[in-house]
Simulated assay, not measured.
Amino acid sequence: MKRSIAPLIGLIALAVPVAIALTYLWVNPAIAQEAEAASAAIVSPHAGLAMIGAAIAAGLASLGAAYAVAMVGSAAVGAMTEKPELLGRLLILVGLAEGIAIYGLIVAVLILNTV
């Protein structure tokens, strides 16, 4: 049974931003104290949770897109071996599967803009 590496890449795409967000949560009190000492700026107490939410949105969308591209791509290659004239239509299907990751990235950016 042949396994695809695409879900592993999606899992890594989820784990790295979550690790960065958790690191921010750990360092956040020091950053808040420095910001208060330097100026009267208010640091949002929910910034770390917003970063985790953005990481989950982007990571799960990347994981879903990786799985979709793996499934659609393998089916597209099989279809192209029988009918090579379907190349254009099949590229559109693979592009639609990749669009899922872009939607997740847009949601992550929208979440981070509210912080």
Rank of each mutant, 00 (worst) to 15 (best):
A75C: 00
A57G: 08
R3K: 01
L87H: 14
Q33W: 12
A30T: 01
W26P: 01
Y67D: 00
A35M: 15
A15K: 07
M80T: 00
A55V: 00
A58C: 08
E34A: 15
L25D: 07
L63S: 02
A21Q: 09
E36D: 12
I92W: 07
G59Y: 13
L14T: 10
A79E: 13
L25G: 10
S44I: 07
E98D: 09
G99A: 06
L91E: 02
A37V: 10
P17G: 10
A32R: 15
S44M: 09
V72K: 13
A15I: 08
S74F: 12
R3P: 02
A61Y: 07
Y67Q: 08
V43C: 03
T81V: 12
A19W: 08
P45S: 09
T81S: 13
L91H: 01
N28I: 01
G53S: 11
I5D: 02
I31D: 10
A40T: 09
L86V: 01
I20C: 07
A15L: 12
P45T: 04
A19F: 11
L91V: 00
A41H: 15
L8I: 03
I52C: 04
L87A: 11
M51S: 03
I31Q: 12
L22Q: 07
E34D: 13
L63N: 02
V43I: 12
P7G: 02
A68L: 14
S74K: 14
A40G: 15
T23I: 00
G59K: 10
H46S: 09
L60Y: 04
G59L: 08
S4T: 02
L14E: 05
G95W: 04
E85C: 06
G88K: 02
M71E: 12
M71A: 10
A68Q: 12
A30R: 11
A38P: 14
V69G: 11
A75V: 00
I20R: 04
V69D: 14
I9L: 14
L14K: 06
E36H: 15
Y67E: 06
M51A: 05
M80I: 02
E85I: 05
Y67P: 03
P84N: 12
A65N: 09
I42V: 15
V94Q: 05
P45M: 04
M71D: 11
L93K: 04
V18P: 08
L63M: 09
P17V: 06
I42M: 12
G88S: 06
L86P: 07
V69S: 12
Y24V: 00
S62A: 15
Y24S: 01
P7R: 03
I31N: 10
A35E: 14
V16L: 15
G78Q: 12
G99Y: 05
E36T: 13
W26D: 00
M80Y: 06
S44Q: 13
S4P: 02
G99L: 07
V43Y: 06
H46C: 01
G53N: 07
M71W: 14
V43D: 04
Y24L: 10
A61E: 04
M80S: 07
E85D: 14
G95T: 07
L93F: 01
A15D: 06
V94K: 04
L14S: 05
H46W: 10
V72M: 04
